[in-house]
Amino acid sequence: MEDLGPANKILGMQIHRDRNNRKIWLSQKNYLKKILRRFNMQDCKSISTPLPVNFKLSSSMCPSNEAERKEMSRVPYASAVGSLMFAMICTRPDIAQAVGVVSRYMANPGGEHWIAVKRIMRYIRGTSDVALSVSWVSKLQTVVALSTTEAEYMAATQACKEAIWIQRLLEELGHKQQKIPMFCDSQSALHIVRNPTFHSRTKHIGVQYHFVREVVEDGSVDLQKIHTKENLADVLTKPINADKFIWNRSSCGLAET
C-alpha cells in the first residue's frame, strides 16, 4: 500500500477543505463542464434559477403524432436528464426539484420538455463552481395523501428517519449529538404530531408514518414551527423567484469554491 496523502477526488467529485474553519465541500465542477460540452451548451447564456416561478410541464406537451416523435427521437433527452440527475444526487440539491420535474417525461418527451432541460443546463453554466456536503432528498411521495397536512406529516417522518441516521453515524465517529431540531411550516401537521388522540384525521394513515410522534414524544427530535418565508426546503419542492432561490441555496450550504 502507498499513502497518497489526503484524498482530493472521489467518484468524480472534488474535495475542498478549509482546515482553519473545519469545513469540507464536495464539488463536481469538472463533471458539470463536461456535461455542458457534451450537449453543446458550454457557451450558452447563464440564468439565475433552474426553472421560472409558476412553471408547469404536462403530458399534453408530449408528441402527438409520428412526425413529432421522430423529431424528438433525435434529441438526447434521457442522456441529458441522466447526467443532470447524477450531479443532483451527489452535490447539487439546488437542481433536485427541476430535474425531478423533467425526469417524469423520459418515456415520451416533447419540445417544451427539452427546452426545460436546456434551461437547467443554462443555470448550471453559471453555477458550476458551487459545492457542498450535506444530506437531502426531493421526490414524489410513494403513497397518496388526502391533504397537504398529511403530505407534510409523512414528509416529517421521513426527515426524522434521516436525521436520526445521521445522528447515530456522527456518534459512532465520536461526536455526541443532542436533541435534533427539525422544522415544519405546517401548523396543522405539527398539531397532529403533538396530539396522538386526534384519530378522526389520522386513523387511515399508515402506522409507519406515526414514527414522528414517537421520536418527538421521547425527546429525540424537537419539531418546531418555521415561517414559510424561512423554509429552506422550498428550493427542493417548487420553482421560486431568484432572490429567495439564491438565499435558499446559500443557506443550505452551497457556496462557490
Rank of each mutant, 00 (worst) to 15 (best):
Ile24Leu: 10
Lys161Gln: 11
Leu254Gln: 02
Ala80Cys: 12
Leu146Glu: 11
Val143Gly: 01
Lys179Trp: 00
Arg213His: 07
Leu32Gly: 01
Lys23Thr: 10
Lys139Ile: 01
Cys90Leu: 14
Ile89Gln: 13
Phe86Ser: 02
Ile180Phe: 09
Leu132Met: 13
Pro109Asn: 04
Arg19Asp: 11
Glu152Arg: 02
Tyr105Pro: 00
Asn30Pro: 05
Arg194Asp: 03
Lys203Ile: 11
Phe55Asp: 02
Tyr123Leu: 00
Arg92Met: 01
Glu172Asp: 14
Leu140Lys: 15
Val134Arg: 10
Lys229His: 04
His175Thr: 04
Ser73Met: 11
Thr91His: 07
Thr257Arg: 15
Ile115Tyr: 01
Lys29Arg: 15
Val102Tyr: 02
Lys23Arg: 15
Asn231Gln: 15
Ser73Glu: 14
His16Leu: 13
Glu152Leu: 00
Thr157Trp: 05
Cys252His: 02
Ser58Gly: 04
Leu26His: 06
Ser188Cys: 09
Tyr209Asp: 06
Ile164Tyr: 06
Ser133Asp: 10
Ile226Ala: 06
Met41Thr: 05
Val235Glu: 00
Glu112Arg: 09
Gly12Ser: 11
Tyr123Ala: 06
Asp129Ser: 15
Cys184Gln: 06
Thr127Glu: 04
Val143Lys: 08
Val75Phe: 06
His227Ile: 08
Lys33Pro: 01
Gln178Tyr: 08
Gly100Leu: 11
His210Met: 04
Asp234Lys: 07
Ala107Val: 05
Trp114Val: 01
Ile246Lys: 08
Leu169Met: 15
Glu214Tyr: 13
Ala163Cys: 05
Ile205Cys: 10
Ala155Leu: 02
Cys44Gln: 02
Leu190Met: 12
Ile164Ala: 11
Leu84Met: 13
Ser250Pro: 04
Tyr209Ile: 06
Arg122Val: 11
His204Gly: 07
Lys244Pro: 01
Leu36Ser: 05
Gly111Cys: 05
Pro63Gln: 05
Arg125Gln: 15
Asp129Thr: 15
Tyr123Glu: 04
Lys45Arg: 15
Ser79Asn: 12
Cys90Ile: 14
His204Pro: 09
Ile180His: 03
Thr149His: 04
Asp185Val: 03
Arg69Thr: 11
Phe183Thr: 00
Val117Ala: 04
Thr237Cys: 11
Asn20Cys: 08
Pro52Trp: 00
Glu171Val: 14
Lys45Gly: 00
Ala151His: 01
Ala159Gly: 14
Thr197Tyr: 06
Ile246Gly: 05
Ala96Tyr: 00
Thr228Cys: 11
Ser147Gly: 00
Thr237Pro: 06
Leu223Gln: 00
Leu254Met: 15
Pro76Ile: 08
Leu36Ile: 07
Gly253Thr: 10
Lys45Tyr: 10
Gly253Lys: 03
Thr237Ile: 12
Glu71Ile: 07
Tyr77Asn: 03
Asn231Cys: 01
Asp3Cys: 09
Lys244His: 14
Ala145Leu: 03
Ala67Gly: 07
Ile24Glu: 01
Leu223Pro: 02
Phe55Lys: 00
His227Arg: 13
Arg17Gln: 04
Asp243Thr: 14
Ala98Ser: 14
